[in-house]
Protein backbone atom coordinates (compact mmCIF):
# COMPACT_ATOMS: atom_id res chain seq x y z
CA UNK A 1 0.00 0.00 0.00
CA UNK A 2 1.42 3.38 -0.99
CA UNK A 3 0.40 6.08 1.41
CA UNK A 4 -1.74 8.81 -0.11
CA UNK A 5 -2.41 12.10 1.61
CA UNK A 6 -5.86 10.81 2.59
CA UNK A 7 -4.67 7.50 4.09
CA UNK A 8 -1.83 9.34 5.79
CA UNK A 9 -4.17 11.69 7.63
CA UNK A 10 -6.61 8.86 8.32
CA UNK A 11 -3.92 6.62 9.80
CA UNK A 12 -2.66 9.46 11.95
CA UNK A 13 -6.11 10.00 13.36
CA UNK A 14 -6.74 6.28 13.83
CA UNK A 15 -3.48 5.61 15.61
CA UNK A 16 -4.04 8.38 18.06
CA UNK A 17 -0.31 8.95 17.82
CA UNK A 18 0.22 12.50 18.86
CA UNK A 19 2.90 14.42 17.05
CA UNK A 20 4.05 17.22 19.25
CA UNK A 21 6.65 19.80 18.45
CA UNK A 22 7.45 21.28 21.84
CA UNK A 23 8.52 24.86 22.22
CA UNK A 24 12.25 25.42 22.48
CA UNK A 25 14.00 27.75 24.85
CA UNK A 26 16.37 30.24 23.18
CA UNK A 27 19.88 28.76 22.88
CA UNK A 28 18.78 25.25 23.81
CA UNK A 29 19.04 22.42 21.26
CA UNK A 30 15.73 21.94 19.45
CA UNK A 31 13.56 19.43 21.29
CA UNK A 32 12.77 16.23 19.39
CA UNK A 33 9.31 15.35 18.13
CA UNK A 34 7.34 13.50 20.81
CA UNK A 35 5.02 10.58 20.13
CA UNK A 36 2.40 9.07 22.41
CA UNK A 37 2.35 5.44 23.48
CA UNK A 38 -1.27 4.66 22.53
CA UNK A 39 -1.95 2.33 25.48
CA UNK A 40 -0.95 4.91 28.10
CA UNK A 41 -0.62 8.31 26.48
CA UNK A 42 2.97 8.55 27.73
CA UNK A 43 5.03 10.79 25.47
CA UNK A 44 8.35 9.59 24.07
CA UNK A 45 10.94 11.31 21.86
CA UNK A 46 10.62 9.80 18.40
CA UNK A 47 14.28 8.79 18.11
CA UNK A 48 15.70 6.18 20.45
CA UNK A 49 19.02 4.40 20.64
CA UNK A 50 19.57 0.86 19.36
CA UNK A 51 22.50 -1.18 20.67
CA UNK A 52 22.76 -4.09 18.20
CA UNK A 53 26.49 -4.60 17.44
CA UNK A 54 27.46 -1.05 18.44
CA UNK A 55 27.35 -1.65 22.21
CA UNK A 56 28.77 -5.18 22.10
CA UNK A 57 32.26 -4.16 23.19
CA UNK A 58 33.09 -6.82 25.77
CA UNK A 59 35.22 -5.71 28.69
CA UNK A 60 37.16 -3.18 26.62
CA UNK A 61 37.45 -0.13 28.92
CA UNK A 62 38.12 2.32 26.08
CA UNK A 63 35.12 1.17 24.06
CA UNK A 64 32.87 1.06 27.13
CA UNK A 65 33.72 4.69 27.79
CA UNK A 66 32.86 5.48 24.17
CA UNK A 67 29.46 3.81 24.67
CA UNK A 68 28.93 5.92 27.79
CA UNK A 69 29.72 9.04 25.74
CA UNK A 70 27.15 8.02 23.14
CA UNK A 71 24.54 7.51 25.87
CA UNK A 72 25.43 10.88 27.40
CA UNK A 73 25.06 12.62 24.03
CA UNK A 74 21.78 10.81 23.44
CA UNK A 75 20.26 12.05 26.70
CA UNK A 76 21.73 15.54 26.20
CA UNK A 77 19.99 15.72 22.81
CA UNK A 78 16.69 14.82 24.45
CA UNK A 79 16.55 11.07 23.78
CA UNK A 80 14.94 8.57 26.16
CA UNK A 81 14.47 5.04 24.78
CA UNK A 82 17.43 2.66 24.78
CA UNK A 83 16.73 -0.77 23.30
CA UNK A 84 18.75 -3.94 23.81
CA UNK A 85 18.52 -7.73 24.03
CA UNK A 86 20.27 -10.67 25.70
CA UNK A 87 21.16 -11.68 22.16
CA UNK A 88 23.38 -8.62 21.73
CA UNK A 89 26.46 -10.06 23.48
CA UNK A 90 27.86 -7.62 26.01
CA UNK A 91 25.57 -4.72 25.08
CA UNK A 92 23.59 -4.95 28.31
CA UNK A 93 26.61 -4.58 30.63
CA UNK A 94 27.88 -1.76 28.40
CA UNK A 95 24.56 0.06 28.83
CA UNK A 96 24.68 -0.56 32.58
CA UNK A 97 28.21 0.84 32.70
CA UNK A 98 27.15 3.95 30.79
CA UNK A 99 24.06 4.53 32.92
CA UNK A 100 26.07 4.12 36.12
CA UNK A 101 28.69 6.55 34.87
CA UNK A 102 25.99 9.10 34.03
CA UNK A 103 24.39 8.80 37.46
CA UNK A 104 21.34 6.85 36.33
CA UNK A 105 19.55 9.44 34.14
CA UNK A 106 15.89 9.73 35.05
CA UNK A 107 14.92 10.28 31.43
CA UNK A 108 15.75 6.65 30.57
CA UNK A 109 13.03 4.55 28.98
CA UNK A 110 14.46 1.02 29.13
CA UNK A 111 13.37 -1.34 26.35
CA UNK A 112 14.60 -4.91 26.70
CA UNK A 113 13.80 -8.30 25.25
CA UNK A 114 13.46 -11.86 26.37
CA UNK A 115 15.26 -14.25 24.04
CA UNK A 116 15.37 -17.87 25.06
CA UNK A 117 13.71 -20.92 23.58
CA UNK A 118 13.10 -22.23 27.09
CA UNK A 119 9.99 -20.57 28.46
CA UNK A 120 11.03 -21.53 31.99
CA UNK A 121 14.26 -19.57 31.62
CA UNK A 122 12.45 -16.35 30.65
CA UNK A 123 12.03 -14.79 34.12
CA UNK A 124 15.64 -15.57 35.11
CA UNK A 125 16.91 -14.06 31.86
CA UNK A 126 14.88 -10.88 32.36
CA UNK A 127 16.21 -10.61 35.91
CA UNK A 128 19.78 -11.07 34.67
CA UNK A 129 19.20 -8.37 32.05
CA UNK A 130 17.80 -6.03 34.73
CA UNK A 131 20.94 -6.53 36.83
CA UNK A 132 23.14 -5.75 33.83
CA UNK A 133 21.27 -2.50 33.25
CA UNK A 134 21.13 -1.69 36.96
CA UNK A 135 17.52 -0.48 36.76
CA UNK A 136 14.78 -1.20 39.32
CA UNK A 137 12.52 -2.46 36.53
CA UNK A 138 12.27 -2.34 32.76
CA UNK A 139 9.79 -0.02 31.13
CA UNK A 140 9.26 -2.39 28.24
CA UNK A 141 10.09 -6.06 27.69
CA UNK A 142 9.54 -7.57 24.25
CA UNK A 143 9.60 -11.14 23.00
CA UNK A 144 12.63 -11.14 20.73
CA UNK A 145 11.99 -12.47 17.21
CA UNK A 146 8.88 -14.30 18.50
CA UNK A 147 11.06 -16.98 20.15
CA UNK A 148 8.77 -19.08 22.41
CA UNK A 149 6.36 -16.18 22.18
CA UNK A 150 3.27 -17.84 23.68
CA UNK A 151 4.75 -18.64 27.06
CA UNK A 152 6.93 -15.55 27.19
CA UNK A 153 3.89 -13.36 26.57
CA UNK A 154 2.10 -15.07 29.47
CA UNK A 155 5.11 -14.25 31.68
CA UNK A 156 5.29 -10.65 30.46
CA UNK A 157 1.59 -9.93 30.90
CA UNK A 158 1.80 -11.37 34.43
CA UNK A 159 4.83 -9.17 35.16
CA UNK A 160 2.96 -6.15 33.83
CA UNK A 161 -0.05 -6.96 36.03
CA UNK A 162 2.31 -7.14 39.03
CA UNK A 163 3.91 -3.82 38.13
CA UNK A 164 7.29 -5.42 37.47
CA UNK A 165 7.36 -4.05 33.92
CA UNK A 166 5.28 -1.26 32.38
CA UNK A 167 4.75 -2.39 28.81
CA UNK A 168 4.74 -5.62 26.79
CA UNK A 169 5.82 -6.05 23.18
CA UNK A 170 7.02 -8.37 20.44
CA UNK A 171 9.73 -7.94 17.81
CA UNK A 172 10.83 -9.15 14.45
CA UNK A 173 13.24 -7.77 11.89
CA UNK A 174 13.97 -7.68 8.17
CA UNK A 175 10.44 -8.63 7.21
CA UNK A 176 10.51 -12.09 8.80
CA UNK A 177 7.35 -13.89 10.01
CA UNK A 178 4.99 -11.00 9.36
CA UNK A 179 2.05 -13.42 9.06
CA UNK A 180 2.53 -14.78 12.57
CA UNK A 181 3.41 -11.31 13.83
CA UNK A 182 0.08 -10.03 12.53
CA UNK A 183 -1.81 -12.91 14.15
CA UNK A 184 -0.23 -12.14 17.53
CA UNK A 185 -1.00 -8.44 17.14
CA UNK A 186 -4.64 -9.29 16.50
CA UNK A 187 -4.90 -11.74 19.40
CA UNK A 188 -3.02 -10.01 22.23
CA UNK A 189 -3.23 -6.57 23.85
CA UNK A 190 0.36 -5.58 23.14
CA UNK A 191 1.64 -2.14 24.06
CA UNK A 192 4.55 -2.12 21.60
CA UNK A 193 5.50 -3.88 18.39
CA UNK A 194 8.95 -3.66 16.83
CA UNK A 195 9.90 -4.40 13.24
CA UNK A 196 12.00 -3.15 10.35
CA UNK A 197 10.85 -0.18 8.29
CA UNK A 198 12.71 2.35 6.19
CA UNK A 199 12.65 4.09 2.84
CA UNK A 200 13.53 0.87 0.97
CA UNK A 201 12.08 -1.81 3.31
CA UNK A 202 8.42 -0.79 3.16
CA UNK A 203 6.64 -4.13 3.58
CA UNK A 204 5.36 -3.04 6.99
CA UNK A 205 3.22 -0.37 5.30
CA UNK A 206 1.01 -3.12 3.90
CA UNK A 207 -0.35 -4.63 7.11
CA UNK A 208 1.70 -4.12 10.27
CA UNK A 209 1.72 -0.33 10.45
CA UNK A 210 -2.02 0.07 9.74
CA UNK A 211 -2.79 -2.76 12.16
CA UNK A 212 -0.69 -1.14 14.89
CA UNK A 213 -2.72 2.04 14.44
CA UNK A 214 -5.98 0.08 14.46
CA UNK A 215 -5.03 -1.88 17.58
CA UNK A 216 -3.53 1.10 19.43
CA UNK A 217 0.01 -0.27 19.60
CA UNK A 218 3.18 1.78 19.69
CA UNK A 219 5.65 0.98 16.90
CA UNK A 220 9.41 0.78 17.36
CA UNK A 221 11.30 0.75 14.07
CA UNK A 222 14.53 -1.24 14.00
CA UNK A 223 17.25 -1.32 11.33
CA UNK A 224 16.36 2.16 10.03
CA UNK A 225 19.66 2.26 8.14
CA UNK A 226 19.79 -1.46 7.34
CA UNK A 227 22.57 -1.77 9.91
CA UNK A 228 24.48 1.07 8.22
CA UNK A 229 24.38 -0.51 4.77
CA UNK A 230 21.80 1.97 3.50
CA UNK A 231 23.69 5.08 4.61
CA UNK A 232 26.93 3.60 3.24
CA UNK A 233 25.20 2.92 -0.07
CA UNK A 234 23.88 6.46 -0.26
CA UNK A 235 27.08 8.09 0.94
CA UNK A 236 28.37 8.77 -2.57
CA UNK A 237 25.04 10.09 -3.83
CA UNK A 238 23.99 13.72 -3.74
CA UNK A 239 21.31 14.62 -1.25
CA UNK A 240 18.55 16.33 -3.26
CA UNK A 241 18.28 20.08 -2.72
CA UNK A 242 14.61 19.70 -1.78
CA UNK A 243 15.64 17.67 1.31
CA UNK A 244 16.29 21.07 2.90
CA UNK A 245 12.53 21.70 2.83
CA UNK A 246 12.14 19.09 5.59
CA UNK A 247 15.36 20.06 7.35
CA UNK A 248 17.29 16.95 6.29
CA UNK A 249 20.95 17.86 6.01
CA UNK A 250 22.29 14.32 5.73
CA UNK A 251 21.18 10.99 4.31
CA UNK A 252 20.70 9.67 7.84
CA UNK A 253 18.28 12.49 8.62
CA UNK A 254 16.57 12.00 5.25
CA UNK A 255 15.93 8.32 6.08
CA UNK A 256 14.88 8.97 9.67
CA UNK A 257 12.49 11.72 8.66
CA UNK A 258 10.91 9.37 6.15
CA UNK A 259 10.39 6.74 8.88
CA UNK A 260 9.13 9.18 11.52
CA UNK A 261 6.70 10.78 9.11
CA UNK A 262 4.66 7.59 9.03
CA UNK A 263 1.86 8.35 11.47
CA UNK A 264 1.90 4.90 13.03
CA UNK A 265 5.59 5.04 13.95
CA UNK A 266 6.34 5.88 17.56
CA UNK A 267 10.13 5.55 17.87
CA UNK A 268 12.96 4.69 15.49
CA UNK A 269 16.04 3.18 17.12
CA UNK A 270 19.18 3.76 15.04
CA UNK A 271 22.37 2.33 16.53
CA UNK A 272 25.70 4.13 16.43
CA UNK A 273 29.11 4.22 18.06
CA UNK A 274 29.60 7.91 17.36
CA UNK A 275 28.58 10.91 19.41
CA UNK A 276 28.17 13.14 16.33
CA UNK A 277 25.90 10.54 14.73
CA UNK A 278 23.69 10.17 17.80
CA UNK A 279 23.22 13.96 17.81
CA UNK A 280 22.50 13.93 14.10
CA UNK A 281 19.95 11.13 14.56
CA UNK A 282 18.05 12.85 17.36
CA UNK A 283 18.11 16.08 15.37
CA UNK A 284 16.25 14.26 12.59
CA UNK A 285 13.27 14.22 14.94
CA UNK A 286 13.20 18.00 15.09
CA UNK A 287 11.72 20.45 12.64
CA UNK A 288 9.34 19.59 9.82
CA UNK A 289 8.55 16.05 8.73
CA UNK A 290 7.59 15.15 5.17
CA UNK A 291 3.94 14.98 4.20
CA UNK A 292 2.50 12.17 2.06
CA UNK A 293 3.53 13.65 -1.29
CA UNK A 294 7.02 14.39 -0.02
CA UNK A 295 7.28 10.80 1.26
CA UNK A 296 6.45 9.52 -2.21
CA UNK A 297 9.06 11.82 -3.68
CA UNK A 298 11.68 10.60 -1.16
CA UNK A 299 10.98 6.93 -1.80
CA UNK A 300 11.04 7.44 -5.57
CA UNK A 301 14.30 9.36 -5.40
CA UNK A 302 16.08 6.63 -3.42
CA UNK A 303 14.56 3.89 -5.59
CA UNK A 304 15.84 5.56 -8.77
CA UNK A 305 19.40 6.10 -7.57
Amino acid sequence: MIITRRTFVKAAAASGAALVLPGTAPGAPPAPVMRAVPSSGEMLPAVGLGTWITFNVGDDPVLRDECAEVIAAFFAAGGRMIDSSPMYGSSQPAIGYGLEKLGRPEALFSAEKVWTSSAADGPAQIEQSRRFWGVPRFDLVQVHNLVAWETHLETLFAMKADGRIRYVGITTSEGRRHDLFEQIMRAHPLDFVQFTYNVVDREAEERLLPLAAERGMAVIVNRPFRQGALTRQLQGETLPAWAAEIGAGTWAQFILKFILSHPSVTVAIPATTRVDHVRENVTAATGPLPDASMRDRMAAYVRDL
Partner: peptide, 19 residues
Protein backbone atom coordinates in the same frame (compact mmCIF):
# COMPACT_ATOMS: atom_id res chain seq x y z
CA UNK B 1 16.90 -19.45 4.47
CA UNK B 2 16.36 -15.70 4.82
CA UNK B 3 19.45 -15.33 7.04
CA UNK B 4 22.79 -14.23 5.62
CA UNK B 5 26.20 -14.85 7.15
CA UNK B 6 26.31 -11.19 8.22
CA UNK B 7 23.14 -11.67 10.29
CA UNK B 8 25.10 -13.86 12.71
CA UNK B 9 27.80 -11.28 13.27
CA UNK B 10 27.27 -9.73 16.70
CA UNK B 11 30.21 -7.33 16.81
CA UNK B 12 32.10 -4.80 14.70
CA UNK B 13 35.55 -5.42 13.16
CA UNK B 14 36.98 -2.75 15.42
CA UNK B 15 35.79 -4.59 18.56
CA UNK B 16 37.08 -7.90 17.17
CA UNK B 17 40.61 -6.65 16.53
CA UNK B 18 40.63 -4.76 19.83
CA UNK B 19 40.18 -8.17 21.49
Amino acid sequence: WTYRLEDFLLFSPRVYWRL
